[in-house]
């Protein structure tokens, strides 16, 4: 490389070293890393804690407990990305609590009892399904 190319390299990487970390910071600052997502037996969970509400539709069954919500996904979804939100009384997504992939049982921690649960396709930005308690 000649002198001008070396200088361009230096300027590019100094710029990248400043801009990219800022971008990364802003892109992940609102992500929820501490939401524990675990699979367990519904019988085991039910026997230990008090069920507040339940609701069901063709895609899933949801059971609301005091500090978490259990989602039983009946069959695999066609969507490549299925994000789980708490929802208000109209089913409008409020806060991400995790994501689901294959059919099965999922448990997500919650701060307060939601009015409903909404599944959202994160890639196509469309609603997959919602369920109200």
């Amino acid at each position: 490389m000649d002198a001008s190319q070396r200088k361009v390299h230096r300027i590019i990487w100094m710029s990248v070293a400043i801009v990219v970390p800022l971008f990364i910071l802003f892109s992940i600052k609102d992500l929820h890393f501490n939401t524990a997502e675990k699979k367990s037996s519904p019988v085991e969970t039910a026997s230990q804690e008090l069920v507040l509400k339940t609701a069901e539709n063709e895609f899933m069954k949801t059971i609301l407990y005091e500090d978490h919500v259990e989602i039983i996904l009946k069959s695999p979804l066609k969507n490549a990305s299925s994000i789980v939100y708490t929802a208000d009384t109209t089913g409008k997504p409020l806060k991400i609590i995790g994501q689901i992939t294959a059919s099965g049982i999922y448990n997500f921690d919650i701060q307060s009892a939601p009015e409903g649960i909404a599944l959202y396709d994160g890639i196509k930005q469309t609603e997959i399904t919602k369920i109200l308690f």
């Binding site: 994000i83 994501q99 994160g122």
Partner: peptide
């Protein structure tokens, strides 16, 4: 970061 990592929040 704007795609996969918005959905797969694995540290």
């Amino acid at each position: 970061f704007l795609g996969t990592f918005q959905q797969e929040t694995s540290p």
